[in-house]
Design a protein around this nucleic acid. Sequence first.
DNA 1: TATATTATAGATAAATAAAGTCTTTGATTA
DNA 2: TAATCAAAGACTTTATTTATCTATAATATA
Lengths: 133, 133
Amino acid sequence: MKYSKATNYALHTMLFLVAYAPDKPVGVQQLAERQNVSPTYLSKILTKLVKAGLVESASGANGGYRLRRRKEEISFLDIIHAIEGTASLFDCTLNHSSECLIQQEMVKAEGQMEEYLRNKMMSELAGKLTESH
Amino acid sequence: MKYSKATNYALHTMLFLVAYAPDKPVGVQQLAERQNVSPTYLSKILTKLVKAGLVESASGANGGYRLRRRKEEISFLDIIHAIEGTASLFDCTLNHSSECLIQQEMVKAEGQMEEYLRNKMMSELAGKLTESH
DNA sequence: TATATTATAGATAAATAAAGTCTTTGATTA
DNA sequence: TAATCAAAGACTTTATTTATCTATAATATA
């Protein structure tokens, strides 16, 4: 079990937008270069972020992507859910008659991780940033 | 990102051993039937549990698997680590110059989940069990 | 000792998911 | 109208997961 690379790209893209992006939209070309990933692939990731309401896009010359919310209102969990989906990490596929106790505990465990990610905002990281991101 | 089915099988197998197994070893055949999984596949999972020191195996007639620790000393995390490995869920593969702040937060988040799983013991579930597991 | 029983291990196959590319379409601006 | 940029779909490649099959090794008991 691993977080996908797509999630990593999404988090770094969002952090860049939060930390450095002015009012002007930023093109996928530029965002892709920073992360050494192909523009077409990153654009699919960005489209997910658009659909999740985290960024907005503008076509045409001087178009690109920019944040749609204040950076204090963008959590790690928002971004991760946009890419990975919101389904539980654990599915008990066995057909027992009753509710699965193991499933219940796994969901609670996941909830602990989610709580941390829900409360961790992009704005917190933006301040700490050096040149490297 | 999903927990593997193998982890699900491992957790259910351990719970069964904790809840019902007497001193006698239980064969993989019996364990597999309960979960509707092939014995050869389950046996690979059990071998991992053996190598992790959670169960012990005995070959030959009347052989099989049995717990190696007291049920109060077997955590969810022990079992999950035995199957999924102990590597971090998140790897930032980008080569930035400095430490990755995103990585650091992701590791902390994962730590929250692990803490829950480390403190959740098989013995806690065994009591609540009905016929269904 | 021979036979049945049971775990272990390796090779391989099939299914699924993730990562990435290519091309077309549609929107916007200058 | 031409250049620029995002969106979307089809497709390919790669990696991982989920098995299966077969052979080998260990053990008990008749």
